[in-house]
Design a protein around this nucleic acid. Structure first.
Lengths: 218, 218
DNA sequence: GCCGAAACAATTGTTGACAATCTTGTCGCC
DNA sequence: GGCGACAAGATTGTCAACAATTGTTTCGGC
């Protein structure tokens, strides 16, 4: 079950995927020798890959102490999400300025499907549509730098994203938010689009903060 | 003629500094052998340093083609500054929420000194105070993630920052903007602080865009 | 039985050599 | 005389062995 052949990029992608899939837990140590065996790669490749992932903020390497999966605290997750809030807000704003007619139709379609998914309580599908919506907004905006940063930040939140998805009532709460985003972009209203996107992500921040309180109590 | 002793961090900082100082021009190739000789470091250190700088977005490494100083186009500089606009806006907002009385006084002092510097047309001093103001705002906000991102992005703009500083009339234009930022944070008004900071950086974006047009004409 | 120090094992950091690739300069052909 | 293929040089990518550091375990003393 592995990339039988080596290459720095291959190892990097494989390890990143493994982290994002939760195969390696936060704080877990990533021993070079193990990774060599697991991916059938050379030590050099493993080492380079870990360096790259450290640059992405997914792992942390401390001198002579090896690489660990970065453990982002809930408070740091809040900060990261705050940044995402303003960046995605900018992206939504630009999307509203640039959206084409065809893209507007596409947005509508996704919105309709989302409502449907909530009605039949298909969480999995709703989650997929959520991804598609945000991806489409990014495509419309065409903001390279924002995309890069969003992607990087999102990678650091895997653990919390998973926990968040377990929160009950999220789809019902976020559906109207998504609909507002779609309507604002459709209506080519940058300010409203930014505002809607920010409110949407702000509610995620609130959820994170409530989790923080739960953790503190336990 | 320098750091007679090696170390990855040392080489990285030295090369970064050299790039930021303009010793290496955008697009220029950074040959590993030269850097080895120049910094008296081993090849491994140079290589690691270049990887790190690539992660910071200061250099670009292409397979078998070596490392080049990253040449950011003016349009990319605009995108980067747009991100900085919203991120710094968030920071200003948080600063307004958290500012202490002592820090408010400090802000006032900087504001007064800035006005003075503009009156006597001391550009150098105004520039320093500008740095101090933004640094203080960051300190007040205490937003680790935002600081990291701002710093990274700022590094990628060196060439343009220099060009921007040559634009005439900048201090006169930005002084009232700075005063609005200070007033909003002092007044503990997050919304106003964010708005003021965004307007301030938006004017930088406008300046960049006008530069873009000038370049296109030439 | 507990604490501390020293030797050991495990793991990472570094080095130098080797292989793959690109660039440059030259030669031959059109 | 110009263009394209080929070869030599230069440069980067990869690898495996060596050195340094850290964490652990064991042994001795209190």
């Amino acid at each position: 079950m592995k990339g039988v052949h080596t290459g720095v990029a291959m190892v990097r992608d494989a390890v990143r995927d493994a982290i994002l899939r939760g195969e390696y837990l936060p704080g877990e140590r990533l021993v070079e020798t193990d990774l060599i065996e697991k991916h059938g790669a050379t030590r050099f490749a493993v080492r380079s890959a870990l360096q790259d992932l450290a640059a992405e903020g997914l792992v942390e390497v401390r001198r002579h102490r090896g690489a660990h999966v970065r453990k982002v605290s809930t408070s740091e997750a809040v900060e990261i999400t705050e940044i995402r809030m303003v960046v995605e807000g900018l992206v939504a704003s630009r999307a509203a300025e640039r959206v084409s007619d065809g893209q507007a139709t596409e947005l509508d379609e996704i919105g309709a499907l989302m409502r449907r998914a909530v009605e039949v309580a298909d969480h999995r599908r709703y989650h997929d549509l959520n991804q598609r919506l945000h991806a489409l907004v990014r495509t419309i905006a065409g903001h390279t730098v924002a995309d890069r940063i969003s992607e990087t930040l999102r990678g650091q939140l895997v653990r919390h994203q998973y926990t968040l998805s377990l929160l009950p009532g999220r789809p019902q709460a976020s559906l109207p938010q998504h609909e507002r985003i779609i309507a604002a972009i459709r209506g080519r209203d940058p300010r409203a689009a930014e505002e809607a996107m920010r409110e949407h992500i702000a509610s995620v921040i609130e959820a994170l903060k409530s989790m923080e309180h739960l953790e503190a109590r336990s």
